[in-house]
Amino acid sequence: QDFEGHIYVGTSSWIICHVPFKKTDITHNMAALPSSIPGRYFVANEQETAGACLKFLRDNVLFCDDPNRFNNPEVYQEFDKIVENVPPGSNGLIFTPWLFGERTPIENHTIRGGLHNISLPVKRDDIIRAVFEGVVYNSKWLFDLVEKFIKRKMDPVNIIGGGAQSNVWCQIYADVLNRTIRQVKNPIMANARGAAFIAAVGLGYCSFDDIPDLVQYSNIFQPNPENHKMYLQLYYEFLKLYKNNKAMYHRLNK
C-alpha cells in the first residue's frame, strides 16, 4: 500500500515505501522511481553500510586471526547476546557507520566511520552495541527525511534482510525511530517472496491489494519511551558529529 514503509538491513540499508507520485530530492539523494505496480512509484535511497559494519567488527577487529570466522554464522548470534546485556546508549559511546562514505541522506564519499566519546572504562561489549546503535542513528536520519519526502508518518514499519533476524537490533530500531517495528517472518527471504508475489499477480492468483494480508510476522517490537528519550540526545550528537567533522574527512580522503 502507498506510504507503508519497510526498512531493509543487510550489507547496506534502505527505507522504502510506495507513493502515487513522481518526486526528486536532489539534496538528500532520494527519488520516487517507477515501480513494478502500474502507475505507482517507490522512494529509492540507500544507506551505504549497515550489516557491513558488523562484518567489519568481526573480520577486522574481534576475529581477525580466526580462520573459521567466515563459516561461523553464530558470531552474529553471539553479538546479539552481548548487546542484550549492555544498557541502551552504550554508556555514551557513539559509532558513526560511514565506513564506505555515504549515499543517503547525504552524498559524501569522503566521510568515514569512528567511535566517539570513548574512554578507559569502555568495554568490548559497549563497542559492539554502539555499532548496532550507530547504524540505526543513521537510519533515523534517513527515516525522518523519507517521512518529510512523502509528507506522511510511517507507523508501523516492516523490517527485512539479514539484520532483521536480530531481535535486539529490531528493538533498537523501534526505540530510536519511536515506531512500531514488525519483523517479517524469515526476513532474509523477503526479496524472493516479493518476486514470487509479483509473479502471482501476473499469473492471476492474487492482486497487489491482497499482498499485505499475506505477509507474516515473527515479532512486533514497540518503542520504549524512556529509551527513545535517551536515544534522541545521542542522535542529535550523532548529527553534530557529521556537521563538525565533514571538512576534516574531506581533507583526509579527497
Rank of each mutant, 00 (worst) to 15 (best):
G114Y: 09
N244F: 10
V83Y: 07
Y41N: 12
V176F: 02
P38I: 08
F100C: 10
I127H: 06
F95N: 06
A130C: 11
F3E: 02
D175R: 05
K229L: 08
G114M: 15
Y205P: 13
A50K: 01
C64N: 12
P212D: 12
P225G: 01
A31L: 08
G39L: 06
V75N: 15
N219W: 03
K153N: 09
S139Q: 15
L120D: 00
I15S: 11
F143L: 07
F70A: 09
N60A: 00
N91M: 10
K140V: 00
E226H: 09
L145Q: 10
E237P: 02
F42Y: 15
S207W: 04
P67A: 07
N253F: 11
R58E: 00
T104C: 14
F149R: 04
W141L: 02
I198V: 09
P73F: 15
P223A: 01
K153G: 01
N29P: 08
D65Y: 10
S13A: 15
D144E: 11
E48M: 05
S35M: 07
G101T: 01
F70L: 09
K240D: 10
P121L: 09
L57Q: 10
N91V: 14
V122P: 04
C53I: 05
Q47C: 09
I106Y: 12
F56K: 12
F143R: 03
F221C: 05
E4Y: 09
L142N: 04
F208A: 08
E226D: 14
W141T: 02
N244S: 10
F132V: 03
H228L: 00
D213A: 12
G134M: 03
L93S: 08
L234K: 02
R152F: 01
N158E: 13
D155S: 13
K148Y: 02
A31S: 11
E48D: 00
F143A: 06
P187S: 05
